[in-house]
Nucleic acid binder design. Structure first.
Length: 497
RNA sequence: GGUGCGGUAGCCAAGUGGUAAGGCCCGGGUCUGCAAAACCUGUAUUCGGCGGUUCGAUUCCGCCCCGCACCUCCA
């Protein structure tokens, strides 16, 4: 079955197929590395990860036997130069390179914890200056750009007839906005650019940029190189073209990037290449709210994975929360929800364990099965879940099906071979969702201290002689020592509190 | 002002022109001296409000109320 996904540009659902019939090429806007990414950032990356896993599975399963397999090529950039990276690195007294390198590594660590697959290419903006400069020169030569009053190069929006198509914003309306979303005045300096809508392609060097400058495009008027740095939108156009070509399959990002970022990317890329579409499908995820409010530094609700981990919430639970709301709906992140996610995952593990036992599969074996893409065709009861995933990535619907089916699977009338088949389908689905079960190793058997062992023995004796007052007192004493005693039918277990 | 999204049980969240998946929490039960665990089980006559279309609407249409997001450097 084909995967269908909503496309922002056409506002319709479209089937995902590689436009060249061989390689599905997609680009996602990656992080700006000036600090740890927060869970809102990760909603986008996790949503893209699920899409990638679903596509991978679909292509594996539906490539004709005699045809070369359809492969995916996933590119996600690292923005390592912009106002924030420059400013913050200077505040820390670090070079831009060292500073962004550090946060890039942190980003990788977090992605791994969230079980996000690594993109095939992860290009950095500063490593692709020549490509960006070439793009600007191309636009200058084509009459799509000009050098502004401040020496920076701007894109001339009026030269792009279909500008605004993606975000469906009326160009006349754009000019009425006087504040940006941060409540700051749009300090559009009309002396520098011809129109407020025009955006910077290349920013001429300013003293506050320090050493962070590169030889830029040649000023057509003087023939001299404009030293400076790339504008925000430029890198994505240049790097997507470099790795995926002038026209590729899908472009993803948070809904906020729709305008102006992606709109500007389209304008730049299509003007430069003369090719439309720049991209066949636009994939935008809605924002994450925190406890009913927009995340912001001033509200102090920008949670990072590290902070949540410190509070005892696993990255797996975070991932579950992030995917258990449809990607196009706003998701309200709450600690209540995080707890619920952890409980749900634990329930899945518990419910599955006896089923695995029936066929003699260990949890570790099952985890491995879930860890790799399979050419499986989802069959049997789990088909409904796959249909949900195929239908605009309906993860909440699929999860509901998974829970229902796992419950149904615990039926003695199923043969072992039937169970094996069903579990394969389930593993394939869990791979798509990127949910890892049984990651927490069995709690190591810790030997209780001698005095606790003795207390427990005394309590057992008291209990056997039905002296419950003494037994309860001893249990309290054991608990005070940091241990919990749990009775079985024929004895008891001691475990750390 | 422009654009878009949404209001479904205590919380979260799917969904459909024919009478509401799933998860969390909670209640009841079995078991237990108690507790925990485990297992079984229950929980929306109802889908923001009011009209309309229809044999029938939560699902389609209209109006209204409420919430949210984006509108030039935020995923």
């Amino acid at each position: 079955m084909a995967i269908e996904l909503h496309d922002t540009l056409t506002r319709t659902r479209k089937t995902l197929v590689p436009s060249d019939g061989q390689t599905y090429r997609f680009y996602c806007c990656g992080p700006t590395v000036y600090g740890p990414a927060h869970i809102g950032n990760f909603r986008a990356f996790v949503a893209q990860d699920v899409l990638r896993r679903v596509l991978e599975t679909d292509f594996l399963a539906h490539t004709a036997a005699d045809a070369p397999p359809i492969v995916l090529k996933h590119v996600r950039n690292i923005t390592d130069v912009d106002d924030k990276t420059i400013r913050t690195s200077q505040e820390r007294g670090e070079t831009l390179t060292a500073f962004t390198q550090r946060w890039t590594e942190k980003f990788h660590t977090d992605c791994a914890a969230l079980n996000c697959l690594t993109p095939d290419v992860e290009p950095r903006a500063t490593a692709h200056i020549p490509q960006q400069v070439a793009l600007v020169e191309n636009l200058l030569a084509g009459g799509f750009a000009y050098v502004g009053g401040d020496g920076s190069v701007y894109f001339k929006v009026s030269a792009c007839s279909h500008y605004g198509e993606l975000s469906h914003l009326d160009r006349d309306q754009l000019q009425t906005q006087t504040e940006n979303s941060a409540g700051q005045a749009n300090d559009a300096d009309e002396y520098d650019r011809e129109s407020v809508s025009d955006f910077a392609l290349w920013k001429a060097h300013k003293p506050e940029d320090g050493d962070n400058q590169w030889p830029g495009p040649k000023n057509p008027a003087t023939g001299e190189s404009i030293n400076g740095r790339p504008g925000w939108h430029l890198e994505c156009s240049a790097m997507s073209t470099a790795y995926l070509g002038e026209s590729f399959d899908l472009h993803g990002g948070g809904v906020d990037l729709c305008f102006p970022h992606h709109e500007n990317e389209i304008a730049q890329s299509e003007s430069a290449s003369g090719q439309r579409p720049f991209c066949h499908h636009w994939f935008h995820n809605a924002h994450l709210m925190v406890e009913g409010k927009k995340m912001s530094k001033s509200l102090g609700n920008l949670y990072t994975l590290e902070e949540l981990d410190a509070q005892g919430y696993s990255a797996q639970a975070v991932r579950y929360v992030l995917i258990n709301g449809h990607y196009r709906s706003q998701l309200n992140f709450t600690f209540n929800g995080l707890t619920a996610a952890a409980s749900a995952l634990a329930k899945l593990e518990k419910a599955l364990k006896p089923i695995l036992d029936i066929i003699g599969m260990t949890p570790e074996e099952f985890r491995e099965l879930c860890g790799k893409p399979s050419a499986m065709t989802v069959t049997g009861m789990f088909v409904r879940a796959w249909e949900h995933l195929s239908d605009d990535l309906n993860v909440p619907g699929a999860l509901g099906d998974i829970f229902s089916c796992v419950g149904d699977l615990n039926d003695p009338s199923y043969s072992k071979s039937a169970i094996v088949g069903q579990l394969r389908s389930l593993a394939g689905l869990l791979y798509c969702l990127g949910l890892e079960l049984y990651t927490t190793p069995e709690a190591p058997i810790v030997e209780a201290p001698e005095h606790v062992i003795q207390l427990a023995a005394q309590r057992w004796e008291a209990k056997q002689s039905r002296d419950f007052t003494a037994a309860d007192a001893l249990r309290a004493e054991i608990q005070a020592a940091g241990w919990i005693v749990l009775d079985r039918k024929d004895g008891y277990d001691l475990s750390p509190a």
